[in-house]
């Protein structure tokens, strides 16, 4: 696979299945314990790699880590005041919604709005990475992290209201 942010997800999935086809423990059910153990470890690694590359957010973090940046360490300095303000407002509006099904429409709007924001950051991230603008890429990655967290909260809000 080329080391780029924009990837062909179908090609990734096909490659993943090809690798699993050889490595999976079920392919080694007759082998000795050591070989089985190796199969479990290798398959775990392949699964982890696929999960990382499949997710746009994790993929961004991984590509940044290849540039020597630790995705886990977010410092205040990386974040713009505007982003923090926007996030606070979005969260407040999320919390002020009624706790029953009547909020579902508004949640859906908020969700598609957030998804659009994420899509926009993804495009910008790709540009930043290709032009080797790492500081911009880092900023965009942090923004995507925040938006992703928000999206998760919207989702769980929906689930609660749907009675899951």
């Amino acid at each position: 696979m080329p080391q780029t942010y924009a990837i062909d997800v179908d090609a990734l999935a096909a490659k993943y299945r090809e690798l699993q086809g050889d490595a999976h423990p079920d392919r080694h059910s007759g082998a000795d314990e050591a070989a089985k153990m190796r199969a479990v470890q290798l398959t775990s690694l392949i699964n982890e790699g696929f999960a990382t590359l499949k997710s746009p957010l994790k993929r961004a973090g991984y590509l940044l880590s290849l540039e020597g940046f630790d995705a886990e360490q977010v410092s205040q300095a990386d974040l713009s005041m505007d982003l923090l303000m926007e996030q606070m407002q979005l969260r407040e509006s999320l919390e002020s919604l009624p706790k029953d099904e009547s909020a579902l429409d508004e949640l859906a709007d908020l969700k598609s709005d957030t998804e659009q924001k994420i899509a926009k950051r993804q495009q910008e991230f790709e540009v930043a990475l290709t032009s080797n603008d790492l500081s911009d890429a880092r900023r965009l990655f942090h923004e995507m992290q925040f938006l992703d967290k928000l999206l998760q909260e919207i989702n769980s809000g929906e689930e609660q209201r749907l009675g899951y």
Binding site: P25, V40, Q41, S44, N47, E48, A51
Partner: peptide, 8 residues
């Protein structure tokens, strides 16, 4: 819903 085998 994480694909197994997996190590984390």
């Amino acid at each position: 819903n994480t694909t197994i085998p997996v190590a984390r």
